[in-house]
């Protein structure tokens, strides 16, 4: 009986999570300098003309879809690290992987390299991850999650400083754009961005689906996982790679937006009420998409006539969450 009850509760959780995303998307498409009613949107979708159609095709559709895609990959990426390190603070934004990816993209642009942004971002993210793992290594003993997180924060500081350094050398207009992008920006996205984030994202989600079983085993602890036939180290490295690449795809289309990756997992897990890694990853992707879409619409409508970079908004949303997380630990006395 209780099984059926919890099943119902979980189904309700998923509906709530999905409903929130749909609501966020609707708000994002209708709200702005010019308000568009849902009826106009529907008419635009059906007839392919009128203000609704223009909104969907050009003005808001691509940015909203890019926000969904970027949020989904970042949410999944964050959850991979949170599960691997068993720590809600472990996420590619906190640990400097996204700053590394952003730094590589800025370097590519600054030096005029003709390498696609996702590849630059992937290289930057992987280099940052290798540096974090290598520098957190402590005299032969296994790296503690806390050392990894702190070293990651340090790598993030360094990558951001290098990015700022590179930005200064650019021509003024380019520098202003780059600065904005480094905060995390979804302004004026086009269908190319949509295609990129959904194409690469889908590919990586397939890869991730193949790794979920190993992930579930790793959650039991290394020894038990090895006993059950998992190749522990290989599985872990594979998951780390997927996690970094997912984050890089997000960075390539939206810049290093802070805190989405960190917030999405715990939020999705709580709303959907799920525990298994596969469900947690899915819930995190949906929650990440919702957060990013909401942040995008708030960032462009909070101050009339001004488009703030979306990263300013996720910073304002995410920082209180992080403070609450830390405060909760103080209350619990987990010094």
């Amino acid at each position: 009986m209780s099984g059926v009850g919890s099943g119902k509760r979980i189904a309700g959780g998923w509906m709530l999570l999905g409903g929130l995303l749909v609501a966020a998307v609707l708000v994002s498409l209708t709200v702005g300098q010019i308000m568009i009613t849902p009826a106009e949107l529907l008419r635009g979708l059906m007839t392919g003309s009128g203000p609704g159609s223009l909104t969907l095709r050009v003005l808001r559709g691509p940015s909203t879809l890019t926000a969904i895609g970027a949020g989904a990959v970042l949410g999944a990426s964050g959850t991979i690290f949170q599960i691997l390190l068993r720590n809600p603070l472990a996420a590619p934004d906190v640990m400097g992987f996204m700053s590394g990816a952003g730094c590589a993209v800025v370097a590519g642009v600054a030096f005029g390299l003709l390498i696609p942004l996702p590849i630059l971002a992937a290289i930057g993210g992987l280099v940052a991850a290798v540096l974090v793992a290598g520098l957190a290594f402590h005299r032969g003993s296994r790296q503690s999650p806390l050392t990894l997180i702190l070293v990651g924060i340090g790598i993030g500081f360094f990558a951001s400083a290098v990015s700022s350094f590179l930005v200064i050398r650019m021509p003024p207009q380019e520098a202003a754009d780059a600065q904005r992008w480094l905060t995390g920006s979804l302004t004026a996205r086009n269908w190319g961005h949509v295609l990129q984030v959904f194409g690469l994202g889908a590919l990586l989600f397939v890869v991730l689906a193949l790794q979920v079983r190993a992930m579930a085993l790793l959650e039991l602890g290394d020894e038990l996982a090895a006993g059950l036939g998992a190749r522990v180290e290989r599985a872990r490295y594979g998951l780390i790679c997927t996690g970094v690449l997912l984050a890089a795809v997000g960075v390539a289309v939206a810049g290093p937006v802070p805190f989405v990756a960190m917030m999405a997992g715990p939020l999705g897990m709580r709303i959907a009420g799920v525990k298994h890694p596969a469900s947690r990853l899915t819930a995190a992707a949906v929650a990440g998409a919702t957060i990013t879409v909401l942040a995008e619409v708030i960032s462009r409508s909070a101050i009339p006539g001004l488009q703030l970079p979306v990263g300013v908004m996720t910073g304002i949303m995410g920082a209180p969450y992080l403070l609450w997380l830390l405060w909760k630990e103080v209350e619990a006395g987990e010094v």
Binding site: L146, L308, P309, V312, G315, I316, A319
Partner: peptide, 29 residues
């Protein structure tokens, strides 16, 4: 670690707000 992360959070929050305010006033880079 907690002190550092609290700093990261407060920095992110306040500097985001500073950015928002300065950008909204169309100040120079």
């Amino acid at each position: 670690i907690r002190l550092t992360l609290a700093g990261v959070a407060i920095n992110a929050l306040l500097l985001s707000l500073v950015s928002a305010i300065i950008l909204s006033r169309n100040e120079t880079l």
